[in-house]
Design a protein around this nucleic acid. Structure first.
Lengths: 341, 341
DNA sequence: CTGAAAGCGCTTACAG
DNA sequence: CTGAAAGCGCTTACAG
């Protein structure tokens, strides 16, 4: 009796005195098998500790039962901690849970296109790519290899080319400007990251349009996402030294930039929110915890992740996609000290 | 010419006018193949966009190139956010990066033992189980099925049964008590979580011993990990109402408990650190950001994750394990407001 | 109701 | 230097 090898369907067949075909039928409820036989096979399988090989089944069905999550900003950063420490957590955590509910495992993957990326990174049934860059090579390769994928936020250079959960960046940016305006802002500056993704680009476009409408001179600054709170001094240096026009409100796309700006302003004797309003386009833990607390949109990454997983599952199973899944959830504005006058 | 199917090794063979064997040899540098043939095959493969199937290779080699990470506290919680929001991030992020460097993909897995868990969750080459519970069924099933795994922190009921990256909980607890004592504490209380893992249990044991040595009456409270900062009021209610003996210092194992306790104390007019010292056994973002900032050990989860991945890779490849990898890294005490008198 | 056979895409002795 | 054959563990027409 072989005891070291894990049992296969043949072992079950032998032990139950039937053919592998019948075992397969019995265990999977396919075909027609006599009740008793099914039960005998079940018992034997249980007894010898049989569990089917996901790999063999995967080869046969050309589906492994695996979804891959590609967190794009991951790749750019020297550190593995993407901006807004909790965003990744909320996305990956939710995605892995929802994937499980749909019968998939979730793989965390870097750049599946890189030549030295593990082969297994290319074995997923479908991919989720968050925040792709302009002409993102990851999307290109996935598309070429005919691997199904959904992108969260479009590739700005190929808006309608792929299955995408749309980013509502323009809408959100306007809502932000309006919030600041109704809190008394007359001269709003925009601070975005430098990644060429749809959030940064669309927000800039929305800002340009808004300034145009109101006849305000645009006050735009881009700071690398990875700067985190250090963006504060960069931003303040830019707008509050020298004698250019000074903004009375900042809309920072990333939460950590926003918290950095609010803190830096206060360090320099500029009162927040009295003299300066600050808000964030994408809330992070820092906004809730650092002082002053900062108004921010909760983008609800766990909902987005959930939708993305559901879309990916449809793709993997070649089922039709409910269009509602491709619309990102309504964001929630969380008003905090930094804009409460 | 078939255009829809992804190309296989046979397609390459046909196009290059050789056998699949030769293609395999050429592409994997095995066997002996003429230089020119190798180059021709390479070119053809590239040209028709061939990339080997990880699944087929996995079946053949019975190794998929996948590592699984089982975050145990994950399972207990109703929400998917484990205590100390950033711990999961730091662990999973680091693990997935290190895995990639070693040629593996990282799967996030719930409870691979659960009957409805995806089959693919059982296909990993090796498993990392963080913070297993006493007699953890996940370890039992992995062990039974002869799947290699490493646990981060031992199963308290089976200390030496499995490959484990030891938790240095006793040592850390003593270091904490000593830090508090040298900051002036004379009556230290311990607050742990309720999970029956080695951190909670060993810290309690270390505390009992410490109290014994010093002839201090033990002041111990356990609060569910999931309570987070809400633990503050629970703890204060317990020790600062009624007329039992009052502690002058708290060592809380979880960062969020510690921040909750510090904040609750201040709300009730107890000055921190003047009248009460507070520290955390496992630092979380809250400790750095909330006021007052709280002294905490940085457990360096990214280092632990790195070691765990390296051990798991050894296990998967049946290589010997460097014993140094099984010793958890030295923790770093980050002294902050809550114990700075 | 049950089973023999083919095949999913690879790799690896083995023979030429 | 090259290739035919077997086999990894399943599933699924198909035949009995």
């Amino acid at each position: 009796m072989q005891r070291s090898r894990r049992p296969t369907i043949r072992d079950v067949a032998a032990a139950a005195n039937v053919s592998p075909t019948t075992v397969s039928h019995a265990l999977n409820g396919k075909g027609v098998v006599k009740r008793e036989t099914v039960e005998r096979i079940r018992a034997v399988a249980e007894q010898i500790g049989y569990s089917p090989s996901a790999i063999a089944r995967g080869l046969r069905n050309s589906r492994l039962g695996t979804l891959a999550l590609v967190i794009r900003p991951f790749t750019t950063l020297d550190s593995f901690i993407p901006e807004g420490v909790d965003y990744f957590l909320r996305t990956a955590g939710s995605a892995s849970l929802v994937a499980m509910e749909h019968g998939y495992s979730l793989m965390l993957v870097g750049d599946p296109g890189k030549p030295d990326s593990p082969l297994s990174a290319r074995a997923a049934d479908a991919y989720i790519v968050t925040e792709p860059f302009e002409n993102d090579p990851v999307l290109t390769i996935l598309d070429q290899q005919r691997v199904p994928f959904v992108s969260v936020g479009a590739d700005p250079a190929r808006r309608d080319a792929f299955v995408t959960i749309e980013a509502r960046a323009v809408e959100q940016a306007r809502a932000a400007f309006e919030h600041l305006r109704s809190a008394g802002a007359r001269r709003i500056a925009l601070v975005t990251g430098t990644d060429r993704n749809v959030w940064n680009l669309d927000s800039q476009a929305a800002y340009a349009a808004w300034c145009e409408e109101l006849g305000q001179e645009p006050l735009l600054l881009t700071v690398p996402e990875a700067q985190g709170e250090d963006a504060g001094d960069i931003v303040l240096d830019r707008f509050f030294t020298g004698r250019g026009p000074r903004p009375d409100a900042f809309h920072c796309l990333t939460g950590r930039h926003a918290s950095g700006v609010a803190a830096a302003a206060i360090r320099r004797g500029i009162a927040v929110p009295a003299d300066l309003l600050v808000m964030a386009g994408s809330g992070s833990l820092q906004n809730q915890m650092l002082s002053p607390t900062v108004t921010a949109f909760d983008l609800r990454p766990e909902l987005i992740a959930q939708q993305a997983v559901e879309v990916a599952a449809c793709l993997a199973e070649r089922r039709a996609i409910d269009p509602a899944l491709l619309r990102s959830p309504d964001v929630v504005l969380q008003v905090r000290e930094s804009t409460s006058r």
